[in-house]
């Protein structure tokens, strides 16, 4: 499960730290283990075509959740919201694959395919998804879609 890519991101996380400006912020916790992430999204433009100019975060947790926040932010920054959401859906599908029949698309997921092994461990899937969920939530807030 612990691919070298995951350990690298864990030891040297990318885009970490909370930055300004931002339009949306979300705080997510994993209630079964106490892992937490506060994540900010800075968008340029409107709606689904808006460009993700920055994702910044402060996170506390295991190597999987920390590395996932690093990989996720690096994947989505620079893309449009629409493109990034598609990557997020691909990652979610990988996490729900239970380690079976998973043929993750490396062109889409890049470093995130290193998390394929996590899908075999139900207790750890939430760790890998925590930052992604916080990002989706913060983006919805930034776009004014949050309920």
């Amino acid at each position: 499960m612990y691919q070298e890519v995951i350990l690298d991101h864990y030891r040297n996380p990318l885009h970490k730290g909370l930055r300004e400006p931002f339009e949306g912020e979300a705080h997510h916790v994993n209630p079964t283990c106490g892992d937490e992430v506060t994540l900010r999204v800075h968008l340029e433009g409107e709606g689904q075509d808006a460009r993700i100019a920055d994702v910044s975060y402060d996170a506390m947790g295991c190597s999987i959740s920390q590395a996932s926040a690093s990989v996720m932010s690096d994947l989505v920054i620079g893309r449009s919201v629409k493109e990034a959401m598609a990557v997020g859906d691909e990652f979610l599908a990988l996490m729900q694959s239970r380690g079976r029949d998973a043929e993750p698309d490396e062109d889409v997921l890049e470093d995130a395919i290193a998390f394929a092994g996590v899908s075999k461990y139900p207790a750890r899937i939430k760790c890998a998804l925590l930052a992604w969920m916080a990002w989706k939530d913060a983006t919805a807030r930034a776009l004014g879609e949050a309920t």
């Binding site: 499960m1 612990y2 079964t32 283990c33 106490g34 947790g61 190597s63 461990y121």
Partner: peptide
């Protein structure tokens, strides 16, 4: 080392512990 990571390594060695709060 985060407690979950300790637990994961132990799990792979067949030592069952619980992690979390």
């Amino acid at each position: 080392i985060h407690p979950h990571d300790v637990g994961q390594v132990l799990d792979e060695l067949g030592v069952e512990v619980r992690v979390g709060h």
